[in-house]
Computed example of a mutant assay.
Amino acid sequence: MNAIEAQLRKQPRLRFLHAVATTVILIIFFWSTSAIQFNKLTINGLEIAGNIVKGIINPDLDLLFNFTDKGVAYLLLETMAIALLGTIVGGLLAIPLAFLSASNIVPKPIAAVIRFMLIVIRTIPAVVYGLMFIRVTGQGPFAGVLTMSLTSIGMLSKLFADVIEDLDTSILESMESIGCTTFEKIRFGIIPQLTAMFLSIMIYRYDMNLRDAAILGLVAAGGIGAPLIFAMNSYRWSEAGSILIGLIVLILLIEYISSKIRAKLVQG
């Protein structure tokens, strides 16, 4: 016990550093609250918030269970399709970029340049990309798919590269020692190590893209966001409630399914 106490006493005392760090964090926190303007919170704003809650409690059932192209189900399906296509296209484009940004595959200067390019891609928000593509392709789901693809590339390439850099190279060395060709090393040594993790990352990104696709609808890039903002701007709170209910149910369902699939991929 005396040896343990002696060892603890030898440890550097960090109380002063902890106190300074805590003080700095508290100062930054209280300074950040100065940006919140409670005087903007008017009676009218509280009434609108109450109407939104009422719309969720009393949704427009005709819209919620309308299975035409004007109903919530179709809009949710369109949102899912935009997110899925964007994830797949972005994932396919991210794979070669991931190999080019992995420092154990290519020279470090090349990897650094590609990683910098991916950082630039990730810096721009999805809504900005959506506004740009709308000017090019016009309003509609196609602009949403292009936006999801581009925003997916940045994140997927970074995560894919991290997985590639963690490859077990001893397997490749063993295969090389028994005379395996480059194709055989890729087919039986690299792909089996990467497939499960790549799929798990893409499923996680699809989960994120589904939320982003709903937001992109606000800038007329397809999906359920545009009808939602139109309903709220027109003060049709029951319609807005129907759309929000459908969106909440969809995201919860996708979250549950994706978490189960990712768990099986990691375990398998």
Rank of each mutant, 00 (worst) to 15 (best):
A220R: 06
D168M: 11
A240D: 10
V219Y: 07
L199T: 11
P192H: 09
N233K: 11
I164D: 04
S152A: 15
K158Q: 13
N209T: 07
S149W: 00
A214Y: 01
Y235K: 13
A240T: 10
T182D: 15
D168R: 11
T195D: 00
F230D: 12
T182V: 14
M148E: 10
Y204L: 14
P141D: 02
E165W: 02
I191K: 03
M232Q: 14
N233P: 00
I153E: 01
A226P: 00
I178G: 05
A161Q: 09
G225T: 06
I178R: 11
K158R: 15
A226I: 03
G223Y: 05
L228V: 11
S177E: 09
T195V: 14
S177T: 12
R211W: 12
A213Q: 01
F183K: 12
I186D: 07
L218N: 08
L150D: 03
R211Y: 13
D166W: 00
L194W: 01
E184A: 14
F142M: 10
L210M: 15
R205I: 09
C180W: 07
T182F: 09
G241R: 04
P141F: 08
F160W: 02
C180S: 15
V145C: 03
G144V: 02
I190K: 05
M202Y: 00
F188D: 08
F160A: 04
G179L: 08
Y235M: 13
V219G: 02
